[in-house]
Nucleic acid binder design. Structure first.
Length: 293
DNA sequence: GGTAGACCTGGACGC
DNA sequence: GCGTCCAGGTCTACC
């Protein structure tokens, strides 16, 4: 099956794929420099399918090598619309960014969308695995989860989907700690998986919630393992940009941008982007940093 | 409300 | 090859 999914323009598949590191985490796999990628997905019907995405003139081209029911196709289209932000509108942000030399490039390059996982459970779990570790550690932990627990792709059993909450909850804390090697994060991941698989926590509802951002943030902070940095990152994935994901990297780049590399704290990072209001997260994310030149 | 220490792993470094 | 130190956010206990 091959279909084309339209996107609200301007749209750039490479811009979405390169928006952050998710493309490097299983079961995503980049397929070249033009934004093409594949993703192994477990559908609600239980089928495991490989989704292949390529750029197309009006959005993206999807190919799936599997027999699908209409309900499967509808589910896949809905997931990809969310993952790639196909219907997101950044015109208000672009109007502001076009007047800021450090952000003007994003309009030309159609930046703004941030690659998401199909489920918010996957994004929350992966975000917890980004905290207090190097990026290599995050990749290792995610790969171990997928390899040990994910459902295999029938045509290539070596490739697996991201495990469902029930699949993660099927392991005990000791196995998550010592086999998957999540370390001290194991009880956080297990509690999250149990809450979601048991129905006590509806993470998918976060996607469409109309709660004010500060209330949504409070609910995210109630998840064990999610602190201020992780919550801000997750809010960005939900399309809420009014909190900054302040980590050691943010402090470093802001220090070099405005404080000549001198030691600063989180409050200086916050102050630097305060004028951007509801767009501060995006302004920070796509800022053309002096430090990177 | 603010702060100190613990948590766990991998990488860098010195020997 | 081995041991030590450090970086990376969050949680808990304490003040």
């Amino acid at each position: 099956m091959q279909i084309e999914l339209p996107a609200r323009l301007p749209f750039s598949l490479p811009a979405v794929v390169r928006s952050h590191g998710w493309i490097q985490l299983a079961p995503f796999e980049s397929l070249g420099d033009l934004g093409a990628f594949r993703y192994v997905d477990l559908l609600s019907s239980g089928k495991v399918v490989e989704l292949r995405l390529n750029p197309a003139p009006s959005g993206v081209s999807l190919s799936v090598d599997a027999d699908l029911l209409p309900s499967d196709t509808e589910e896949i289209q809905g997931k990809l619309t969310w993952m790639l932000g196909l219907d997101q509108d950044f015109s208000d942000f672009y109007a502001l960014a076009s007047r800021e030399p450090k952000l003007a490039y994003i309009v030309k390059q159609a930046r703004g969308r941030i690659l998401r996982s199909p489920t918010f459970f996957e994004d929350v779990l992966k975000t917890i695995l980004t905290t207090n570790t190097a990026w290599g550690g995050t990749k290792r932990m995610v790969s171990a989860l997928v390899d040990h627990l994910g459902s295999p792709l029938p045509s290539d059993p070596g490739c697996r989907a991201f495990p469902s909450p029930a699949q993660v909850a099927s392991l005990d804390e000791d196995a998550l700690r010592n086999t998957i090697r999540l370390g001290y994060r194991a009880p956080y991941v297990l509690e999250l998986a149990r809450l979601v698989s048991g129905g006590a926590l509806d993470l998918e509802a976060f996607k469409t919630s109309d709660l004010p951002t500060h209330e949504l943030r409070a609910q995210l902070l109630a998840i064990k393992g999610v602190g201020g940095y992780a919550a801000a990152n997750l809010l960005m994935l939900l399309g809420r940009y009014d909190y900054l994901p302040v980590d050691s990297w943010a402090i470093k780049v802001v220090s070099h941008e405005w404080y000549e590399g001198q030691p600063i704290g989180p409050s200086q990072v916050e102050a630097a982007f305060e004028p951007w209001g509801e767009w501060k997260g995006l302004a920070y994310w796509f800022w053309d940093w002096v430090y990177l030149k």
